[in-house]
Design a protein around this nucleic acid. Structure first.
Lengths: 152, 152
DNA sequence: CGAAGATGCTTAACATGTTAAGTGAATGCG
DNA sequence: CGCATTCACTTAACATGTTAAGCATCTTCG
């Protein structure tokens, strides 16, 4: 059998870990996990979204998102209000505290990303992301059907 | 701020998920998680290894590995014995049941991998893995020091 | 209208990720 | 030798990943 340490899943896992290792300490200093940070960023970009939409954007499964939103709301970093038209849906938005927190994290985060880009090379990085996108697209629809998470 | 859905971490996450989505159902049918499968494969390749070495190979953190080994041992898929020379170390090896289980999973797993390779293109896949390896190497040593997990 | 089904979200249960602390065994060194 | 340090691994505690159930609300259609 193939040397599994050279398999595609392992390559992807190690590469992602190498990248995230750069960001985690900074996020941690601000009391945020990687996933919480994704949610805040998504909310800042979307300016309010339904939970399902947020799950798709932040690439989180419903149950994870449910828990995280509960915690972020308790920390006053986000706000929720149920939609009037459809009581099942709830609109989530980032709070003022949330915006403030983002502002305090963003500079370091941007700097790290810039350093990664510089080291790896902007062109190469673009190529890599191109290929990753193609891989994702190639496999879309191969596996199970219903995809609440990604799959736009 | 950058559209975070196009950031490198998200690209890597989505790509990996697209790949793993192909394998999970088959593994699940055999009562294995992705991580348990990694450990079995690593053990089959190494023919017995110390826990730390196994963590490095299967790219798992110590605490995760500890729990998983406990469970795999309870299921009689692996065996452990403490080293004579150094009582702190324990040698882990795959059991006969473990080998049997691997044999029952491997064909499907190989078929899925072959299909992914076929769809994406073997050459492109090699290119992608090459770039992933470079990315990993580029970032090695940038972040925190001590790396018990990977970083050979 | 009203019951059956679909939808949006949450809870539950178990497995792993992540960091810190704990434990026993080896090592280094005065 | 003896004691502090290091080492290999495990436990603990909390956050997320993953699948299955649960629970309202909404929609569909007779």
């Amino acid at each position: 059998m193939r040397d599994f340490s050279r398999s595609l899943p392992m390559s992807l896992l190690r590469a992602r870990e190498a990248v995230m290792r750069q960001f985690r300490p900074s996020l941690r200093q601000h009391g945020l996990t990687e996933q919480q940070w994704r949610i805040l960023r998504a909310l800042a970009a979307l300016e309010g979204a339904e939970v399902t939409e947020l799950a798709r954007t932040a690439f989180l499964l419903g149950p994870s998102l449910s828990r995280i939103l509960r915690d972020l709301e308790a920390r006053n970093l986000i706000e929720r209000k149920t939609a009037k038209a459809d009581q099942r849906r709830s609109m989530v938005s980032i709070s003022k505290d949330g915006v403030k927190l983002m502002a305090s994290v963003a500079p370091t985060s941007e700097a790290i990303y810039a350093e990664i880009t510089r080291r790896f090379g902007a062109r190469k990085l673009a190529e890599l992301q191109q290929m990753l996108g193609e891989l994702e697209h190639t496999l879309a629809g191969l596996g199970s059907a219903d995809d609440t998470r990604a799959e736009e």
